Simulated assay, not measured.
Amino acid sequence: MTAARPVGASSEGVRKSMRANKGRDTKPELALRRAVHALGLRYRVSIRPLPKIRRTADLVFTKAKVAVFLDGCFWHGCPEHHTKAVTNAGYWAEKVTRNRERDAETDRLLAEADWVVIRVWEHDDPDKAAIRVAEKVRARRP
Rank of each mutant, 00 (worst) to 15 (best):
R54L: 01
D58S: 00
I53W: 09
E135M: 14
L109R: 05
A111R: 06
L32C: 12
R98T: 13
K63M: 12
R42M: 04
V14F: 11
V133I: 15
R98L: 13
E112P: 01
A31D: 03
W92Y: 05
T83Y: 11
I131K: 13
R138P: 11
R19F: 01
A57Y: 04
V14L: 06
M1Q: 14
T106P: 03
V133T: 11
T97G: 00
V86H: 10
D124P: 09
K95E: 05
N21A: 04
C73Q: 08
G77V: 15
F74S: 14
W121G: 05
C78L: 13
E101Q: 02
L70C: 10
F69S: 13
V116I: 07
M1S: 14
F69N: 15
S11N: 14
T56M: 00
L32N: 12
A139Q: 14
K84V: 11
R34P: 01
R33L: 06
N21M: 08
E135D: 12
R108S: 09
R44Q: 02
K84F: 13
V7S: 14
T87H: 12
T106K: 09
M18K: 04
E122A: 10
R34E: 08
W92F: 15
A35S: 08
H37S: 03
L30V: 00
L109P: 05
R5S: 09
A57L: 00
G8D: 06
T97F: 11
N99P: 01
T56W: 00
G40I: 01
D103T: 03
